[in-house]
Amino acid sequence: IRCIGVSNRDFVEGMSGGTWVDVVLEHGGCVTVMAQDKPTVDIELVTTTVSNMAEVRSYCYEASISDMASDSRCPTQGEAYLDKQSDTQYVCKRTLVDRGWGNGCGLFGKGSLVTCAKFTCSKKMTGKSIQPENLEYRIMLSVHGSQHSGMIVNDTGYETDENRAKVEVTPNSPRAEATLGGFGSLGLDCEPRTGLDFSDLYYLTMNNKHWLVHKEWFHDIPLPWHAGADTGTPHWNNKEALVEFKDAHAKRQTVVVLGSQEGAVHTALAGALEAEMDGAKGKLFSGHLKCRLKMDKLRLKGVSYSLCTAAFTFTKVPAETLHGTVTVEVQYAGTDGPCKIPVQMAVDMQTLTPVGRLITANPVITESTENSKMMLELDPPFGDSYIVIGVGDKKITHHWHRSGSTIGKAFEATVRGAKRMAVLGDTAWDFGSVGGVFNSLGKGIHQIFGAAFKSLFGGMSWFSQILIGTLLVWLGLNTKNGSISLTCLALGGVMIFLSTAVSA
């Protein structure tokens, strides 16, 4: 259960009878995928790494000078000259100064003066180019299975845990398959586009800190620079940016070097996208990844198990997540596992009318040892309800109150669905055939309105939902006002479609 501690969480529900669903994975976010007769899966884009970055340009932001020398000439005696002028490691300046009897010249006039100092770069920052084909995306998957609280967001041991898996995709191999043991396998067909235009970005490294910066900004930095990788004795261009020549006297000129420019660069980098280094690879934390999940090989585990009949206890007080759902960790005293956990939410304890829904599909106890633990997640209705676990006299209950409203949740879900469709863009549509167009249209309606429909009408039977949709269509056909007619027709059509397409 990876997503319960992530604030940016998206719930995606598969269409009834569908074998695939489109998701948008982004750094700092987590996606929970639910479908009829399929286990619930949490998917998170953990890291995006980039390798084989080529150094484009380096800037010196802290330097020192040494070996200063000057040469001067009297008027009419030609130009002052130093051998160091031809050495690229030196920074030199030529000027004219007033000369006369007082400073060793027989004539009054302008004399030539040249001053040089050896330039040494102490600290530099480097910009590297990123090729999209060198990106690698690491995705962690977790099935809502027989897990306890100690396994949440624990990325170790996934090789031997059938509840978890790690997959890596690249532009050259965008397809992967996550093996989930008894739950089958989940196929991923990803489109490795981060949403960032790397043709316009460089990877900047300064003092063990890293950013993504725009090329134009990078090339306009007014500091000494050299092109390409460091060859040991780089040729620094624009050395004068960190060196200041003071007022010249008759035979000498003082040279000083400016202080470190790291603070000024940090100020200019305010708002830039931060990154990290992992050995020789860069780690990015921006952008998104679009994936199509193929769920035809994914299956529920323990459908044929019998119900657990022994007593359950709450190991922890049920807690609310950031998303309005409830996490419950229970301990089973029996030894008759594997068995299914009898769990439901009810409005009252007399009729036990089921409300809400299970995020953890078909929760089971897989071990036959005593005191096995299991964590599950529920989506309670707004208002008061009861969490009921167990059967008969051994069942345990917990009162729950959820604040908020169904309308607010439906609106929030619609906005999130619209954002998801905007990110998917043209990849969500198939114009290759008439059937493809209608299929894409259905998927689009489901992406945007599916979660809201589930919130508003999830407790009704599909037949009642179709009746309401048919009534809206009838009202649309018999209303003389054009805008009201079109609105009723659209709402009725969407409702009829979703009542037959969205899983219960």
Results as ranks from 00 to 15, higher is better:
Arg2Thr: 06
Ile4His: 06
Val6Gly: 04
Val6Ser: 00
Asn8Val: 03
Arg9Asp: 09
Asp10Pro: 00
Phe11Leu: 05
Glu13Phe: 07
Thr19Trp: 10
Trp20Lys: 04
Val23Glu: 03
Val24Gln: 08
Leu25Cys: 07
Leu25Arg: 02
Glu26Gly: 12
Gly28His: 04
Gly28Ala: 15
Val31Pro: 00
Thr32Cys: 03
Ala35Gln: 04
Lys38Met: 13
Val41Arg: 00
Val41His: 03
Asp42Lys: 07
Asp42Thr: 02
Thr47Asp: 00
Ser51Gln: 08
Asn52Pro: 00
Val56Lys: 07
Ala63Cys: 09
Asp67Ile: 02
Ser70Tyr: 07
Ser72Ile: 06
Pro75Met: 11
Gly78Arg: 04
Ala80Asn: 10
Tyr81Asn: 12
Leu82Trp: 07
Gln85Ile: 01
Ser86Gly: 13
Asp87Ile: 04
Val91Glu: 04
Lys93Arg: 06
Leu96Tyr: 13
Gly102Arg: 12
Gly102Thr: 02
Gly102Met: 09
Lys110Asp: 06
Leu113Trp: 07
Leu113Asp: 03
Val114Phe: 08
Val114Thr: 13
Thr120Ile: 06
Thr120Ser: 05
Met125Ala: 02
Gly127Cys: 05
Ser129Trp: 05
Ile130Trp: 10
Gln131Ser: 03
Gln131Gly: 06
Pro132Gly: 00
Glu133Val: 06
Glu133Thr: 03
Met140Arg: 04
Met140Pro: 00
Leu141His: 04
Val143Asp: 07
Val143Ala: 12
Gly145Asp: 07
Gly145His: 06
Ser146Arg: 00
Gly150Phe: 01
Gly150Met: 12
Gly150Trp: 14
Ile152Pro: 04
Ile152Val: 06
Val153Leu: 15
Asn154Ala: 04
Asn154Ser: 14
Gly157Leu: 01
Gly157Arg: 09
Thr160Ile: 05
Asp161Glu: 15
Glu162Thr: 06
Val169Ile: 14
Thr170Met: 13
Pro171Val: 03
Glu177Tyr: 08
Glu177Val: 06
Thr179Trp: 08
Leu180Asn: 10
Gly182Pro: 02
Gly187Pro: 00
Leu188Glu: 07
Asp189Tyr: 05
Glu191Phe: 08
Pro192Leu: 02
Leu196Glu: 00
Asp197Tyr: 05
Ser199Pro: 03
Leu201Lys: 00
Leu201Ile: 15
Tyr202Ile: 12
Leu204Gln: 10
Met206Cys: 04
Asn207Lys: 12
Asn207Val: 15
Asn208Leu: 10
Lys209Cys: 08
His214Glu: 09
Trp217Arg: 12
Ile221Phe: 10
Pro224Gly: 05
Trp225Gln: 09
Ala227Ser: 15
Thr231Met: 04
Gly232Pro: 05
Pro234Glu: 03
His235Arg: 14
Asn238Trp: 07
Lys239Trp: 07
Lys246Leu: 01
Lys246Gln: 14
Val257Ser: 09
Leu258Cys: 10
Leu258Gln: 03
Ser260Ala: 04
Glu262Phe: 09
Val265Glu: 12
Val265Ile: 15
His266Asp: 12
Ala268Asn: 11
Ala270Phe: 12
Glu274Arg: 02
Glu276Ala: 07
Glu276His: 09
Met277Ile: 15
Asp278Glu: 13
Asp278Ala: 14
Lys283Ile: 01
Lys283Asp: 01
Lys283His: 12
Leu284Ser: 01
Leu284Lys: 03
Leu284Met: 13
Ser286Gln: 09
Ser286Trp: 14
Gly287Cys: 14
Cys291Leu: 01
Arg292Asn: 02
Arg292Pro: 00
Leu293Gly: 00
Leu298Thr: 02
Arg299Trp: 08
Arg299Pro: 05
Gly302Gln: 04
Gly302Phe: 09
Ser306Trp: 00
Thr309Met: 12
Thr309Asp: 10
Phe312Lys: 09
Lys316His: 15
Pro318Asp: 06
Pro318Gln: 00
Ala319Trp: 06
Leu322Ala: 03
Val326Trp: 05
Val328Ser: 00
Val330Gly: 03
Pro338Arg: 00
Lys340Ala: 03
Ile341Val: 14
Pro342Ile: 04
Val343Asn: 02
Met345Pro: 06
Met345Ala: 00
Val347Asn: 13
Thr351Trp: 02
Thr351Pro: 00
Pro354Trp: 00
Pro354Gln: 14
Arg357Ala: 02
Ile359Lys: 13
Ala361Trp: 08
Ile365Gln: 05
Glu367Tyr: 01
Glu367Trp: 05
Thr369Arg: 00
Thr369Pro: 02
Asn371His: 15
Met374Ala: 14
Met375His: 04
Leu376Lys: 07
Leu378Thr: 02
Asp379Met: 07
Pro380Val: 03
Pro380Glu: 11
Phe382Thr: 05
Asp384His: 05
Ser385Tyr: 06
Tyr386Ser: 08
Val388Pro: 00
Val388Gly: 01
Val391Pro: 00
Gly392Pro: 13
Lys395Gly: 00
Ile396Lys: 06
Thr397Phe: 05
His398Val: 00
Arg402Ser: 01
Arg402Asp: 08
Ser403Thr: 14
Gly404Gln: 08
Ile407Leu: 10
Arg416Ile: 01
Arg416Gly: 09
Arg420Tyr: 12
Leu424Asn: 08
Asp426His: 15
Ala428Gln: 05
Ser433Pro: 11
Val434Leu: 14
Gly435Ser: 05
Val437Asn: 03
Val437Phe: 14
Val437Cys: 09
Phe438Ser: 07
Phe438Thr: 00
Phe438Ala: 07
Asn439Glu: 05
Ser440Asn: 07
Gly442Trp: 10
Lys443Phe: 09
Lys443Cys: 03
Gln447Phe: 09
Leu456Gln: 10
Ser461Glu: 01
Trp462Phe: 13
Trp462Cys: 11
Trp462Lys: 10
Phe463Thr: 00
Thr470Tyr: 11
Leu472Cys: 14
Val473Lys: 01
Val473Arg: 00
Leu477Gln: 04
Leu477Pro: 00
Gly482His: 11
Ser483Tyr: 13
Ile484Met: 13
Thr487His: 09
Cys488Trp: 11
Cys488Glu: 08
Leu489Pro: 01
Phe497Leu: 05
Ser499Glu: 10
Thr500Cys: 12
Ala501His: 05
